[in-house]
């Protein structure tokens, strides 16, 4: 008997959901009507779900404009292209910078004609520039993530 109750409860849950969504077939409709006629708890639940549906039907999600839909694929396409472009740009820049650093070390630091004080001075300048650049990038990234006013037009 207990098993039968469980079966009819599961069946009721499926049927009441279909009834709320207007998806009941003719045979399901007659089964459902029998179920709610026989069980006042089911009937009450059905009435409540109907009211809930009326409430949620009044709420719809924001529909973007036609222009936004028209531009949708273009935006995706631009991102696809830019992704590849960024990859190539980063790869090329790293390659050139690596080679330039290697040549700089080879021709500047290993040259016996450049005084030590100039070597130390140039090293300090480049180290300072590198540290400043890293600090600015870190700060910008941090602000972009946490700035609550970033969408405010200044």
């Amino acid at each position: 008997m207990k098993k039968l109750d469980n079966i009819s409860k599961d069946r009721f849950q499926a049927l009441v959901m279909k009834a709320v969504d207007g998806d009941l077939s003719e045979s399901e409709k007659s089964t459902f009507e029998t179920l709610i006629a026989q069980n006042p708890i089911y009937k009450k639940e059905w009435e409540e779900f109907k009211k809930l549906k009326e409430v949620t039907d009044k709420v719809q999600l924001y529909e973007p404009t036609q222009e936004e839909w028209d531009m949708y694929w273009n935006n995706v396409y631009n991102r696809l292209e830019r992704g590849l472009a960024w990859l190539l740009l980063s790869f090329g820049t790293l390659l050139i910078l690596g080679f330039a650093t290697y040549k700089f070390i080879e021709e500047f630091y290993l040259s016996p004609n450049i005084p030590l004080i100039i070597t130390i001075g140039i090293t300090a300048v480049f180290s300072g520039l590198f540290a400043l650049t890293l600090s600015i990038i870190r700060e910008k990234l941090h602000i972009r993530k946490t700035d609550p006013y970033k969408e405010v037009q200044r």
């Binding site: 849950q13 499926a14 959901m17 409540e48």
Partner: peptide
Amino acid sequence: GTVMSRLYSARKALK
């Protein structure tokens, strides 16, 4: 069947 029971639980919770 799982969809139906999850939907039932979700609607009941919202109710």
